[in-house]
Simulated assay, not measured.
Amino acid sequence: MDSLTITGPYGAIPIRVYRAAAGSEQSPALVWAHGGGFAWGDLEMPEAHWVSQQLAARGITVISVGYRLAPVSAALTDSEPARDGVLFPVASEEVAAAFCWAADQATAYGIDADRLSLGGASAGGALAAGVALRLRDAGGAQPASLLLAYPLVHSVLPEPSTELAQKIAVLPADARFELDDVRAMNLNYVGDPAGLDNPYAFPGGHDLAGLPPTLVLNSEHDSLRASGQAFAAELALAGVDVTVCQEPGTRHGHLNEPENPGAQSSLRRMTAWLDGSNRG
């Protein structure tokens, strides 16, 4: 693992490069954004560090991005002190900068530039999907695919299906995402209510045509599955090649649980997607 800082639009961005295990001169690669409600998370959390280690051991080079976090306010939590942070578009533009850096450095790191993907988990999924729209609109290097794990990509959480609503209803209160909680988290990220309608912040419900093939990997028992499922349907309607699946028996954030069999299963799905073995 190489710990680096790269130049970004708001200053230095810490990243970690997890090189693919030896075996081929050019490996597929993933630029990866951890979750944490936009305001929490870091490069040490299992969803960042452990996932990256595991993918690298399976032949995928991972560039994990330490993007700047949104503030922590009383509206979000009463269990910790308030903390300053940054608002959209800072984190989004930093993830975009990391992707462009990875594309530029592909040869130096033994990356197959034609198999450089972009992804994220939970709030990191919103970042990755929004950056994919940025890259589409800007031209230049484009991700080979998009990988979204239990993403929140809508400013307002879509209505759950009857099947999902039944599973949400039996979750403990601290494992559910209520509509008001999601709105508060999203508004905390963008700062201004007008920002909730920005497609680069929350791509759900916007023009998705031209995005790369996308894997949406949901947790089964998860309020936010409503966003992942709706986004997959929107991608399909926009003509994007999309694969959607859910990990049986898992709750939101299961990639943060290395001992969870569902996390191991998801890593196998992710590896197959990133090396292209289950895509046309």
Score class of each variant (00 low, 15 high):
Ser3Arg: 10
Pro9Cys: 05
Gly11Ala: 07
Arg16Ala: 13
Arg19Ala: 11
Ala22Arg: 01
Val31His: 03
Trp32Glu: 08
Trp32Lys: 02
His34Lys: 11
Trp40Arg: 12
Asp42Ser: 14
Asp42Gly: 10
Leu43Lys: 07
Leu43Trp: 01
Pro46Val: 01
Ser52His: 02
Gln53His: 10
Ala57Ile: 01
Ala57Lys: 12
Gly59Ser: 06
Tyr67Asn: 10
Arg68Phe: 13
Ala70Thr: 07
Asp78Glu: 13
Ser79Ile: 09
Gly85Trp: 11
Phe88Trp: 15
Cys100Asn: 15
Ala103Asn: 09
Arg115Thr: 11
Arg115Ala: 10
Leu118His: 04
Leu118Val: 04
Gly119Leu: 03
Gly120Lys: 00
Gly120Val: 02
Val131Leu: 12
Val131Gln: 11
Asp137Asn: 15
Asp137Glu: 15
Gly139Lys: 09
Gln142Cys: 14
Pro143Gly: 12
Ser145Val: 01
Leu148Pro: 02
Ala149Asp: 06
Ser155Met: 13
Pro160Glu: 01
Ala173Val: 13
Asp174Val: 10
Asp181Met: 12
Asn186Ser: 13
Gly191Lys: 10
Pro193Cys: 13
Asn198Glu: 15
Asp207Thr: 05
Asp207Ser: 12
Leu208Gln: 13
Asn218Ser: 08
Glu220Gly: 02
His221Thr: 03
Asp222Asn: 07
Asp222Lys: 03
Ser223Ala: 09
Leu224Gln: 06
Arg225Thr: 04
Arg225Gln: 12
Ala233Thr: 11
Leu235Asn: 10
Val242Gly: 07
Val244Thr: 03
Thr250Ile: 04
His252Ala: 08
Gly253Phe: 00
Pro258Gln: 07
Glu259Arg: 05
Asn260Lys: 07
Pro261Asp: 10
Ser266Phe: 01
Leu267Asn: 03
Trp273Ile: 05
Asp275Cys: 08
